[in-house]
């Protein structure tokens, strides 16, 4: 069952990057089931970090993340592993596994999950087809263009039908047609009840069909525009 509501409360998180220490402060924010939220803001404002916090890739240094009222940010490592099974994430740098074909990359999230190998192979083919990348299935990912790699990474994010879909700059290498295709896939996920959170600089997404809300990050704080 999809999440009804994911909330962030008093989140404070700092990290070091090339330009020194950066920080993110989120006093309160909520994401509802079936909604698509766009996070914008300048580079270093914490968009990626916020997605990683929501995806359970890192624990917040203070504050809480609640899913349907349960503080998932306090969970143990084993519980957080299970949390991540409900999350699909498209990384800003794609993070495909070189040395594997596109379909093998898309298969990766499904491997430890229940279900037959045959069903998983079908699911992978469907996910690639949904993003228009079925012809790339048997190609080595290191030989793909930036746009193709991004489509494969998107297929990998949606293949497990996640309840929380996190997309970090999903359209940065795409033409307008593919931007529409990506938004269509996101809308399908929303229709299932999934929460979709997209972090992007891309002006084509601002006000696009299906975006329900936009949060602007900047100056280390985030709030409703």
């Amino acid at each position: 069952m999809a999440f009804a509501r994911i909330e962030l409360k008093n989140i404070r998180h700092t990290w070091r990057d090339g330009s020194g220490e950066s920080g993110l402060s989120v006093p309160a924010m909520a994401f509802e089931s079936g909604r698509h939220v766009l996070l914008t803001g300048p580079t270093g404002s914490g968009k990626t970090t916020l997605l990683h916090l929501l995806g359970g890739l890192v624990r917040p240094q203070s504050g809480e993340i609640l899913a349907d009222g349960v503080a998932v940010s306090r969970w143990t490592a084993a519980h957080r592993d299970r949390w991540r099974q409900r999350v699909g994430i498209l990384f800003q740098h794609m993070e495909l596994i070189d040395g594997l074909n596109a379909d093998q990359n898309v298969m990766a999230p499904l491997v430890p999950r229940p279900g037959s190998v045959r069903d998983k192979i079908v699911a992978v083919a469907e996910a690639l087809a949904k993003v228009g990348a079925e012809t790339l299935a048997h190609r080595q990912v290191r030989a793909l263009s930036g746009g193709e790699r991004q489509l494969v990474a998107l297929a990998r994010a949606i293949v497990g039908h996640p309840d929380l879909l996190l997309l970090d700059e999903p359209t940065s290498h795409q033409d307008d047609d593919h931007v529409r295709l990506i938004l269509d896939r996101v809308n399908e996920a929303n229709d299932r009840g999934a929460i979709v959170i997209t972090a992007s600089h891309d002006p084509r997404l601002t006000g696009a069909v299906g975006i329900d809300a936009t949060h602007v990050l900047g100056g280390g704080r985030v709030g409703e525009p």
Binding site: L57, A78, D81, R84, V87, I89, E95, I97, A108, V111
Partner: peptide, 14 residues
């Protein structure tokens, strides 16, 4: 790679 698999929901046991 291990980190990536963790992001996909692979457990330490997996």
């Amino acid at each position: 790679d291990i980190g990536l698999f963790k992001t996909f929901g692979w457990s330490t046991g997996d």
